[in-house]
Every structure is written in structure tokens, then in C-alpha cells.
Amino acid sequence: MSNLLIVESCNDEFFINRLLQVLNLSSEIKVGSPVCHIDEYQCLNGLSETLLSNKLKEIEIEIEKRGIEKIGILLDADKDGIESKLHLLNNVLKKIDSTICIENVNQWVYSHILDVRISCHVLNVDGHGELETLLRKIKSNNSTFADCLHSWRECLSEHAEAISDKEFDKFWVNIYQRYDTCAKKEKKQAARKCSFKASLQKDIWDFSSCYLDSLKRFLLSFV
């Protein structure tokens, strides 16, 4: 049997893979092993109800063929909030199985129609945000370059321009990775050594942070 985790983007996948390493789960991941680990990812490349619905329909065909027993879904709260994302997900799930209703994050529900257990976790900080919002909270290095973006944002405001919180968080993480935590020698190969994926293998994030507790419980619940 195997487990499937659906994530919204490649960055989510890189982050989860790193967190699995921290939790000592990645080395034990084997396709076809008893249900105890996450052993495959499906990327959504941005969330919409239609895209999520199409992805679940694809998976529906594969559940019995591949012996999938648990399906986890990882979403971003964004500015809409956790409840809004759960509502969106339930709308999609009910098109497949009208009896399904996920009321809380990290809650497992069983679909008799699909013969699979389904759960969801929503990445957030204080109820809103996304992966990058979370990463800002668990950064562990000096972030002078990235923090100076606040002055830049204030300058934009003074000129009647604005950048959304979502865009700002993404930009902050990018600058933190590229300028605050990437060594001079690494910058000669910045595309590879200062990338999002590369940064997650560096000691620049606090993976013991309490901000990750709920997400860790979600991942461990696959065991």
C-alpha cells in the first residue's frame, strides 16, 4: 500500500522533503510498503477549485491500481484563511463522495466510494499566509538584506504603489536565500546553489520551531 501527498507547488514539495528528512521519515519511504510513510507527491502548481478537482479525478483512477490507502492534501491559507480553504476542498470532495466532510485540519475521514482515507493541512501563520509566510517565521540566520525590504515597501506606499503580503513574503524569502545566506563563492553558481531547493538543505531554518508543530503532526499521522 502507498500514501499520496498533494501539494500546491514545487516549493512546497522541496520544503516537505526537507522536513521529512528532519523527522527521519525520508530514508524509510518506500513505494508499496505498509501504510506508514508518504512516498509520492502530486504538484498542483497553484490552487483553484477546478485544478484541484481535476487532480483528484486523476488520482481516483489510480487509487485501486496503485494501492493508495491515504491521501493528504497540503494547501495555503493565503488571505482567505483556513476555513475558506477547507470549504473549497469540501466542495471539490463532495463532487466525488457526497458523504465526505473535513471539518478540521489534520482530521482523517474515510471515503467509502474511493475506499481511501483523506486529510488536509493548511499552511498558515495566525490563520493566514502560505509557505513563505511560515518560512519567515522559522528563519534562523541574520536577515539584514531581506528586512530592508520593509523600507522599500514603505517607499512604494509613499508613491501610491503597493505590493501584496503574498508577493512581499515571496520576495523576502528570495532575498534572504540569495543575499543573506548564500556565500560569495556560491553566488558564482547562484541558479543552483542559491536556489529555493538548495537553501532548504542549509542550516538557515529552525525546523524545531513551534510554528511547524501542527504540520509535523500531520506528516506523522501518515504512520
Rank of each mutant, 00 (worst) to 15 (best):
D78C: 04
E64S: 14
E62W: 12
D80W: 09
E62F: 12
E40H: 13
S33W: 08
L56Q: 02
N45G: 10
L74W: 06
N45H: 14
K57T: 09
L47P: 06
E62N: 12
E69C: 11
G32H: 01
G72R: 02
E62K: 15
G72P: 03
E49N: 12
E62P: 10
T50I: 13
G72N: 00
I68G: 02
K55D: 04
S33I: 07
L44E: 02
A77F: 06
L56D: 02
K55G: 01
E64I: 14
T50P: 07
D78P: 12
G46Y: 02
Y41A: 01
L52F: 05
D76W: 04
Y41E: 03
R66V: 07
I73Q: 01
Y41K: 06
I38W: 03
L74P: 05
H37F: 15
V31Q: 09
I63V: 13
I68L: 06
G67S: 01
L52P: 08
E60L: 08
C36W: 05
D76P: 06
D76Y: 05
L51C: 10
I59R: 04
I63E: 00
I82Y: 03
L52D: 04
L51Q: 14
E49T: 14
I59W: 04
K65Y: 15
R66T: 08
E58D: 11
H37A: 13
S84L: 01
D39T: 11
E69A: 07
E58M: 08
D39G: 11
K65E: 13
L75W: 06
N45C: 10
D39C: 09
I63K: 05
K57M: 09
E83F: 09
I59D: 02
E69H: 13
Y41Q: 01
A77S: 11
I73A: 00
K65D: 09
I38P: 03
Q42V: 15
S53L: 14
P34K: 02
S84P: 13
E69N: 14
P34D: 01
N45D: 11
L47F: 11
D80I: 10
G81H: 04
K70Q: 00
K65W: 09
S48V: 03
E64T: 13
